[in-house]
Design a protein around this nucleic acid. Structure first.
Ligand SMILES: [Mn+2]
Ligand SMILES: [Mn+2]
Ligand SMILES: [Zn+2]
Ligand SMILES: [Zn+2]
Lengths: 142, 142
DNA sequence: ATACTATTGGGAATGATTATCAATAAGAAA
DNA sequence: TTTCTTATTGATAATCATTCCCAATAGTAT
């Protein structure tokens, strides 16, 4: 096959793995709280891992799209990311306003409720967002 | 009482009512979808009501704090406001992704669930955020 | 009317996120 | 290994919503 004939056939590479991506993913392990792209960027810098800020942003949102990691918006509007490993499927969060400690929670109760409410009102293709904020036991005793 | 003696006693005025504030509040009536500060500012401009953008921002967040109006964050991170009149107390939303139509919903089911989950995990001072997104009946038949 | 000061508004400043685009480096093919 | 294609990176500029600044304006008590 000559070079000219390559065309579409050579488009077999879909994605490439890079040290930047591994660094970012690794950083997410070992943390049990949501972090912003900026915070993760700083975290990597502290570990002497040079990764461009733009790359951190791009990589995190790509991972979130693939649902490899979880993303939420802080009350200030920032996007925060976290690896919620243990619980791979659909779940919600219980987040400490003081220290950021996050616990994943789930239960048929809200799932059923949201489904029922949506149906009653003629909505389809529904999704929902349920997050609980508060102060964890550890932070309370301070 | 002389001027010098006025001191703290003269601090009786707590808030003042202005045409800007009324304009903004009025604009919120007659709309049944969440709007951003910018959108409301444009809306007022269209009605020939001159109100500074900064004032729109300030007023809306002040109203939201007082819970005179409701505020949520769009998926893009913008703060959106709406007057959810009929239902004055705590409630949640069922929002159409296509047209923005919003229906307020409530129920002890989630209230109890979130309360229970928080307590089980030792959290206090809890609040929660529950919103359901989907496609309304009207938008589906298009 | 006068005094006091809450409120306004135009524009600068902020800060997170996105867009650019040339340089770099996976990975397939030779 | 060397070459080649192009996905990915990263420094920097550009966006854009929101906040800050502060002099000018305008409610309200007296
Ligand atoms: Mn759920
Ligand atoms: Mn509730
Ligand atoms: Zn805590
Ligand atoms: Zn609709």
């Amino acid at each position: 096959m000559s070079l000219k004939d390559v065309g579409k056939d050579s488009k077999q590479i879909v994605e490439r793995s890079t040290r930047q991506q591994s660094s970012i993913l690794e950083a997410l392990y070992g943390i049990d709280e949501f972090k912003s792209a900026q915070e993760i960027h700083a975290l990597l810098a502290k570990k002497k891992l040079k990764v461009g800020l733009a790359t951190v942003y791009r990589t995190l949102q790509k991972m979130a799209e693939k649902e490899d990691i979880d993303a939420i918006k802080s009350t200030e509007g920032e996007t925060l990311y976290r690896h919620c490993g243990q619980n791979d499927g659909h779940h919600h969060h219980l987040i400490c306003n003081k220290c950021g400690l996050t616990i994943t929670v789930e239960g048929p109760a809200i799932e059923n409720w949201t489904e029922k409410v949506a149906k009653e009102n003629g909505f389809s293709e529904v999704s929902h967002k349920v997050d609980i904020f508060g102060v964890c036991k550890g932070c309370r005793r301070k």
